[in-house]
């Protein structure tokens, strides 16, 4: 089996699968990174993903174009972000619990809307892969990286973009200060509330797009619980990546490549119980982080509601 795994076509297959699997994690985790950088942690990513997945699917089904689905998913992201903001920022609720509430709300509402609007499983026309001219002709690399649909490119493109926004723009500086020292940011005249709202909306749009990727760019259909816990993994990957876009890219790729590897190992004939293959990405993610452990300071005010009066 080992020699089979080392064949070039298999390696290409594994990495291609991994890149596809990484896409929703990458989108959702980058979004969550913005939330957390501004000081809010949002456990409701799963619920937002489900809503994005459903609404994207439904609008695409009705309009016949996945692009309208994407637009609708963005709208859903804005709505869910504002909702989370209302509860967690304006009403200063305990974020762990409001996130769980948002998760239940989103998963439930998506299932409910699916039932009353569609009510049966059906496929749609999703996004087709776009081979990037010249690059996709490259041997190996072309197949792995340059023969996907636009959402995959978009997700990976968001890594340098997020990095640039976060570290090279004043706005990024404001975000980081809202999450690190909101009191200081406030005395400097920044509106911590506005920054946090904006980040929640951005993060939520990203999560909704991650969900829409599942229906419009991956499975071309919708079914109950299509996100299947990916939102929670995305939250975990933010910690893996230590709030840095490149770290998140590493985490999402690592997790997904191990996942892709285990699928392929099973496909090629496996002599160990499949459960060990399925758990491999989870085990190795913990191990990787343990080995690479070092002292990191996250956003110091993460999870703490901000209010001017002070507590």
């Amino acid at each position: 089996m080992i020699d089979q795994l080392l064949q070039m076509s298999v390696i290409v297959g594994i990495i291609t699968t991994g890149v596809r699997l990484a896409t929703p994690f990458l989108l959702a985790a980058l979004g969550e990174m913005f939330d957390q950088r501004a000081g809010v942690y949002n456990l409701g990513v799963e619920g937002i993903m489900m809503m994005g997945a459903f609404v994207g699917f439904w609008v695409a089904l009705r309009s016949g174009s996945p692009w309208w689905g994407i637009l609708a998913a963005i709208g859903v992201g804005i709505f869910m972000g504002l909702l989370m903001g209302l509860i967690s920022i304006t009403l200063q609720a305990e974020q762990g619990i409001s996130g769980i509430g948002l998760y239940m709300f989103g998963v439930g509402l998506a299932g409910y809307l699916f039932r009353i609007t569609v009510g049966y499983i059906t496929g749609i026309e999703g996004f087709k892969p776009i081979a990037i001219p010249y690059l996709s002709d490259l041997p190996i690399v072309g197949q792995i990286f340059f023969n996907h649909n636009w959402m995959v490119y978009f997700a990976f493109l968001m890594v340098p973009v997020s990095w640039f926004v976060l570290y090279k723009t004043t706005w990024g500086l404001k975000i980081r200060s809202a999450g690190m020292t909101p009191e200081a940011a406030d005395t400097l005249g920044l509106s911590v509330v506005a920054i946090r709202y904006t980040c929640l909306v951005i993060g939520s749009i990203a999560a909704a797009l991650a969900g829409a990727f599942l229906t419009l760019g991956h499975t071309n259909m919708y079914a109950d619980n299509i996100s299947a816990g990916r939102g929670f993994i995305a939250v975990a990957l933010v910690y893996f990546g230590r709030w840095s876009p490149w770290g998140i890219l590493g985490g999402a790729l690592f997790f997904s490549l191990v996942d892709a590897l285990q699928l392929w190992v099973q496909v090629l004939g496996l002599n160990i119980p499949y459960e060990f293959a399925v758990m491999a990405p989870y085990v190795l993610t913990i191990l990787a982080l343990t080995v690479a452990a070092r002292q990191i300071w996250g956003p110091a005010a993460l999870g703490k509601p901000f209010n001017r009066e002070g507590d």
């Binding site: 909702l83 209302l86 509860i87 609720a93 619990i97 509430g101 989103g106 439930g108 299932g111």
Partner: peptide, 13 residues
């Protein structure tokens, strides 16, 4: 599930 979620959000809010 939706109503439970709404309930949690309202109570915590």
């Amino acid at each position: 599930l939706t109503i439970q979620g709404i309930m949690v959000l309202f109570v915590v809010g």
